[in-house]
Design a protein around this nucleic acid. Sequence first.
RNA 1: CGGUGAUUAGCGCAGCUUGGUAGCGCACUUGGUUUGGGUCCAAGGGGUCGCAAGUUCGAAUCUUGCAUCACCGACCA
Length: 565
Amino acid sequence: MRTSQYLLSTLKETPASAEVISHQLMLRAGLVRNLASGLYTWLPTGLKVLRKVENIVREEMERANAIEVLMPMVQPADLWEESGRWEDYGPELLRLKDRHNRAFVLGPTHEEVITKLVANEINSYKQLPLSVFQIQTKFRDEIRPRFGIMRGREFLMKDAYSFHLGEECLKKTYQKMFDAYCRIFDRLGLDYRPVIADTGSIGGEASHEFHVLADSGEDEIAFSDNSDFAANVEKAEALAPQGERAEPTQEISTVELKLERLIKTSNLDLKTTVKTLLVLGTATEGEPEKIIALVLRGDHQLNEVKVENLSAIASPLTFATDEQVSAIANCHSTSLGPKGLAVDVIVDRSAAHLSDFVCGANVNGQSYTGVNWQRDCGEINIQDIRNIVTGDPSPCGSGNIIIKRGIEVGHIFQLGDKYAQAMNCGVLTENGKNQILTMGCYGIGVSRIVAAAIEQNHDKYGIKWPAAIAPFQVAIVPMNMAKSARVKETAEALYEQLQQAGIEVIFDDRKERPGVMFADHELIGTPILLIVGERNLDEQNIEVKNRITGEKLLMPISDVMSLFK
RNA sequence: CGGUGAUUAGCGCAGCUUGGUAGCGCACUUGGUUUGGGUCCAAGGGGUCGCAAGUUCGAAUCUUGCAUCACCGACCA
């Protein structure tokens, strides 16, 4: 490729709208352009990278015996009604109508379509197990698209689905996929971790996420400092504190300050206080809305995922309005406390372990000290409803927790039969009976990987691509080619030779000053720069600069091809 | 969905307080100059100032509404 005939589209200045480094560099290096909120055009250089990621993913899927298909992005709404997700999915699902007024959705995922397909195509146990995958554009109407490609509304995803007669077979394929994912991220050259994950709205049993570690990541991951344990903070169990709860030593007394003021003025340790949140309980038909109180130790944070997984709590989690709060406690939410609340109370394990604690008194501007659970609040329902924090004992039983941020680039699930059941996807077994299939599903955010790779591999000059996904393997940068016939001949010959050898080479044949060319190629992140200049031609040498290490060395022109063996 | 802010040339921004011929830097075009790290000089092209309504002799500037984009928040101790 010659730059003079290519769409380089690099920018000197950083567009104001780009927040994270990967977004800035993707715009500056001419990989993508923004079209509308969460929608991006892939420019030639970006597309090259995207295709490389795609191909690695494809090769490893095929190696894991998955077969490629391509399903429509636009899907009929009745499929989604059949699975129940037309109601469940919410506004993230973009719904649209065709000219005949028939309802469709833009596919955020393809469980329905693939399950329908398999239900129609697969009839016998002899055809199982089956794994299929596709690499297709998805659309999710995110509340808040951000960080450029990282959380766009339209994105490229690899999604795979496996079908089995039973749990045992599913587990085998799940492990195979797990291994395939590790190979993919190894080949991509990324620093990643598989972590135990919540199964979320898709449902099912076991699940792992694959995270690329980066400070800008949107997820928090809990690691043990003494074992391989790693889990999404959403999922990581916070163990109950050791030992028995201490006996009460204080009587309740009332303080004429709201809890917040009390904490500030008397320098109270948050660990001796509790906070109380009112949320909606599961709706039952014909009954008035039920409110449930959640109680956490003051220094802890509510884990929404854990709470939503409790059967008593409405999903999605909804906080009580100020009106609902006053109706129940006759005070503002900042003065709530568990004593004397006329609703069901769910107490976090750590909060439940306290004695002589401080809390709101359910009267505006008043708090209690010296409160004790059994004595003052009666029987309580104890659950794990908080986020694990640094220093907590690891749920695996070994070591303590440290927390790092990660970008979720892959997620695998053992789905079970939720969709197969709903779409009546079964086969005849050996003894001639129909049996509903068990499914697994396996996603990789292909476009997000491009952004994640940049988050992890950049410096002040630009992107430092891992070799496997660099848009070009090598750039030829001639010094003052317009004036020197020798430089031109040498550069052209090199270009010819590299092309012949099937190496992805970009030849900077623009009439630009050296500084401009260096800056562009460093921004784009081509791993090797071949610098052709008068300076070294007398000795028939060429300068080779490694973008990753910054090393420069001289080598005879005739040896250049050895770099690519 | 709530809060905040922005919207003026392809990009980054000034001008708005105090209404009166629309500017700067980068990029682009042409000529010259320079040539191993974003040269320098000169000339030039490009904008219904987000949209709509209002106030006014006159609106980028004041008022109102709308749209789009971005950031923050959605944890209520």
